[in-house]
Write a protein that binds this DNA or RNA. Structure first.
Lengths: 249, 249
DNA sequence: ACAGGTTAGTGTTGTTCTTACGCCGATTTG
DNA sequence: CAAATCGGCGTAAGAACAACACTAACCTGT
């Protein structure tokens, strides 16, 4: 690095943590690196930001190039800029997380063969990823679990029509706690954020469940009035923690 | 911009939104710019990140150079990177917010004369600041009001010894809602996060109040056990909002 | 056609949390 | 010693939450 130009010997990238939900558990979309550094390791999809491109635009671009999806939920989470996080130079990265319906996704997936895969989030967090992507994943996962309590983002992960049981399983996966069926249904229906489609599941080997749709319009209305969705931590779990803390004190 | 080097014709900076609390209202520390661009306008303190400096380090440096304070609360909030946010080139900025006790601060302030000042947050938000600093301030203020519900960060803004009334006023300023005195005291004391110092205010023209201290150790203990502090939006306010939303529906 | 398997759907009660609310006491000042 | 100011305290009614178990609907295989 030499002289006054030092400040410009640096670059920035975006990295996306793309979450999906399938078969009752939470997944993240990873790419297997085919070049050095970290050749052969799994990594989060990302790219350098073009010189005349906004950050959000870059994040959407990366997402679309990879999945073919537009108009998906995307949110900036944190910027990682440790001096040595990239072996080839000073590159800071802005991390985004994104929520996609796996059902919408299938399209492009085939073309990438084994280079792109959905991975279970929990096990991925225990595996070594390229760069500082473990830290990024963890950070974004935490952000997701926060967000889901405050905004009904969970719906972004489900197909357009879903059953209450599916919704409950999603929340259980995200919140990592079991919920009571009756209480969950009461609460979620009382928000008036679901539209009862008066349609039923088909082809299931048991009593078919009613299908619902998220009432986005209604949500935006409530949101516009500063009204906030909230899923609190259960009192039960809270008590356990308080007890544990007291015991250790 | 020419050729492959384009990606490196860019720089990144940090900007700090430094909050303080005084005389019952929330303030932010601003610097009056003495050079172009935006000469004469107020701006958030910030600087380019050195080539071999971590982002957080840079933010701490800016804060310390300005206030002389170390070990203050500092948190990364959001990165702003619109292509044209800086008139002289592509500069993205990582915004941090910071909480300082105004009483600790006095030190360095004098040397800056009129270039550095505490400004009331509400009125600042209605004034034009340099660059995109209005957006940054707004974003950080929102982040602060979120954080204060989840973590007892408010204490960072108060002097080491404070009365319950002072604490209540702080919360009222941050949450922008009035709180009931008795209920507030009950709740806050029940958290066991305050140490009763058995000392009293002096020199006040009325009955002196008891002084308390934040029990940081205890908080860290609870936090380590995953226990989270929570100040919810009051049901009263919530109802008002719901009603407003319903009416408009 | 019917028995067995599987998931859907539904109400009530006890407990806890939240809210609303008003008065006396301590201290300083003139 | 009177007036002004803020500090400190408790209870009762209502709302939200947690716990809990059975019947209904549909499919499958015999």
């Amino acid at each position: 690095m030499n002289g006054e130009n030092n400040f410009f010997k640096s670059a920035f990238s975006v990295d996306n943590v793309i979450f999906g939900f399938d078969e009752g558990d939470l997944k993240v979309l990873l790419i297997k690196r085919g070049t050095d550094p970290y050749n052969g390791l799994w990594a989060l999809p990302g790219d350098l930001v073009y010189p005349n491109e906004d950050l959000d635009t870059a994040a959407y671009r990366v997402l679309e190039e990879l999945t073919g999806l537009k108009n998906v939920y995307l949110e900036q989470v944190h910027t990682f800029g440790a001096v040595n996080r990239h072996p080839l130079g000073r590159v800071i990265t802005i991390a985004y997380f994104s929520l996609v319906k796996i059902s919408d996704f299938a399209l492009k997936a085939a073309s990438f063969a084994q280079n792109v895969e959905w991975h279970n989030v929990e096990s991925t967090m225990k595996t070594e990823l390229a760069f500082d992507h473990n830290a990024i994943l963890e950070n974004c996962f935490n952000a997701l679990t926060q967000r889901v309590r405050i905004r009904p983002v969970g719906f972004e992960l489900l197909p357009p029509k879903f059953t209450l049981t599916e919704l409950q399983h999603l929340y259980e996966a995200l919140l990592r706690e079991e919920l009571d069926k009756r209480n969950f249904r009461k609460k979620i229906l009382s928000t008036s954020l679901l539209i009862d489609l008066d349609q039923f599941q088909e082809g299931v080997p048991h009593r078919p469940a009613k299908l619902y749709q998220f009432n986005k319009q209604r949500y935006q209305q409530l949101e516009a009035h500063g009204f906030s969705f909230e899923v609190k931590e259960s009192k039960k779990k809270e008590k356990k923690k308080r007890l544990a803390a007291l015991i250790s004190a």
